[in-house]
Structures are given as C-alpha cells and as structure tokens.
Amino acid sequence: MDAHAPHNGSADGEPLLTIGEFAARARLSPKALRLYDRLGLLTPAYVDGFTGYRHYRPAQVEDARTVVLLRRLGMPLADIAATVRLDGEGAGQAVAAYWAGVEERHAEQRTLVGYLRGRLSGRGCEMYEKDFEIKTVDVPEQYVICESRHLLAEELPVWIGASTQRLEEAAERECGGIAAPAFVVYHSEVTQDSDGPAEACVPVRDAEAARAWAQRAGRERGTGFRVEPAHRLAYTRITKAQVSYPQIIGAFDAVEAWVAREGLRVAGACREIYFVEWDAAGPQDQVCDVAFPVTAAAEAAGTA
C-alpha cells in the first residue's frame, strides 16, 4: 500500500478505483474487502491518510477473484493469506497440497460414515469381521522400556513414530538391543476428546541395563522400565492402509467380538504391535497387529 499516492492514481500514474468501484468489478461487498484487508488477504494500493478511504489498482481485481475462489474451495483464511503471498508456481503447489489433504480427509470420512451406518444399524462387527482373520499367540515374559503420554487422536501418529524411535535408539545403545517388535498400549481411549494415556514400549535384551537407563532417564517424557508378564494375545494383522481411522477401530471391534464369541475374557489393555519399518511399507503391506491380552473365562473367574 502506498500511503503517499494521490487518491486518483498510484505513484506510477496508474488510475485507482474507489472501494465501491473495485467492489463492483470484483463482485465483492465493501464489507468483504475491508475484512480481506484486515486479514492481509488483499491490501489496498492506497489508503487516504485523512479520510481512511481505500483505493485499489484495476489489476487487483484478479487477485480479489482468486481470494473468492479459494474461499469457495473451503480454504481457511490463514491458508489463503499464506497462499496469495507466494509466486504463481508456489501458489499452485499450495492449492494442490491443500486439496490433497481435503481428499484424504474426505476418504477417511466416507469410511467413517460406512462404519457408523453399520454400527448404528447393529451390523458394525458383522461388516468388519469378514475383513479380519483372528488368531492367538502366546507371548513370553518381556523386559520393556517405555514412554507414556496423555494425548489426543490427532497427535497420535507423530508421537508413535517419535517415541518408538527414541526407545529403539536407547535399546540399541544402552539396553543390550531390541528383543521384539515395538508396541503401543492404550490404557484408556485416545480420541478427539479422550487423552489416554498411551504407552509406547520396546522389548529389550538386558533387564539390568534397562533399569539403569530408566533411572538415568528419570521421568523425562514419562519414560520407564517394567516387566511385561507372559500372556496370550488375540490379534488380527492389518495393512498400513487399515491403520487409518476408522478401519483400525473396525479391527479392534472384530477382535473383541471374536474374543466374546470364543468364550474368552479380555485380560488387559488393547495394543498395536508394529513389526515392520513404517516408512518403507506400502499401503497394502502388513505392518501391525491389533491385539488384546486374553484368558479363558474359567481362569478369569478363578482369579476374581
């Protein structure tokens, strides 16, 4: 904005339009133009220092229409402000990246709609059970180093990757090496409204070294060491694509329904066990076991 330009033209002699004239050409209201100015989306070429009247260059009509189109695309105002500051190629890439994110969210929402329709109609487990093969496995006692955190669902993917990487590096460096795949235990629901906690765990080979590591680490990031007792897991193996919400909820539901049908009891917190390198896996590669510790109903009754 050139505060010293004459009100009837810019510093280079280009004629300027009043806000009313510009609003008519851009097919926007003066109120919208004032909002766009306030948000930094479309700055006037000149503002009269005495009257406060805004004036625009004719070439800015195209900029105004671009802002309108981005608004119709549903782009948040902050993203529009960042986009219009970029050059042509960069702005085009920003729009493409924004829309890729929209399509990804829409794909997740379509899947969620299908899941909710089945769940609300009483067919949720039936719809998903056919997609998952349920097995059991006996897991021996394990020594694990762990990191616990209260967090919401949107924070979970980044935290799982970062926390397991930290623990795996500590296991290799200070705890005798990694003894089994990393896993994440959900001690309570992690959703948009419920913050767990979740616990990332890496089994290690040297228990004494792991205890010493945990003592040195103190309570940083909720780190610690514990013994995971021997247990039986009921689990289903899922692909990288199925880890996305809500497919993974369908996997948990399918395992729970199978456990009940088989006359077993859930004996601990549900978990995800990651057995391949995440970044190297493709969408259809199997990457994770969704699992519940289980026990026979008679055993559960005997310990009650």
Rank of each mutant, 00 (worst) to 15 (best):
D193R: 13
A254G: 12
D63V: 07
A300R: 10
F275D: 05
Q242V: 03
A297D: 15
A298C: 12
T164Y: 04
A97M: 07
A59R: 09
V259C: 03
A281E: 03
R221D: 12
G20C: 03
Q142H: 00
V95T: 00
P293I: 06
S29R: 10
V137D: 14
A214E: 01
R38Q: 13
C201F: 00
T164M: 11
C270K: 05
P140M: 02
R54P: 01
E208W: 10
H7Y: 14
A301T: 06
M1K: 05
F183P: 03
A291R: 08
C146W: 07
A78V: 15
P140C: 02
T43Q: 13
R110F: 08
A3N: 09
V255S: 03
F132L: 10
F50H: 14
V137Q: 15
E154P: 09
Q109R: 07
I134G: 09
E147F: 02
A207C: 07
Q142L: 03
E21N: 09
T223V: 13
F275R: 04
A24Q: 13
E169L: 06
E169N: 05
D131W: 13
A100K: 13
P76M: 05
L120C: 04
G250M: 06
I273G: 08
L70N: 04
I145P: 01
G9V: 09
V61Q: 01
V68F: 06
M75V: 04
R166V: 03
W99Y: 14
R25L: 14
G13V: 08
I160C: 06
F132Q: 11
R149A: 03
E174N: 11
E277R: 14
A207E: 10
Q165H: 11
A182C: 10
H231L: 04
G263A: 07
I80A: 05
A3W: 12
Y128D: 15
V290T: 00
P44R: 01
T239N: 04
E89W: 13
A59S: 12
W159V: 01
V68D: 09
W213M: 02
G250C: 06
Q109P: 00
Q247N: 12
A11G: 13
L70I: 06
V139T: 05
A207R: 12
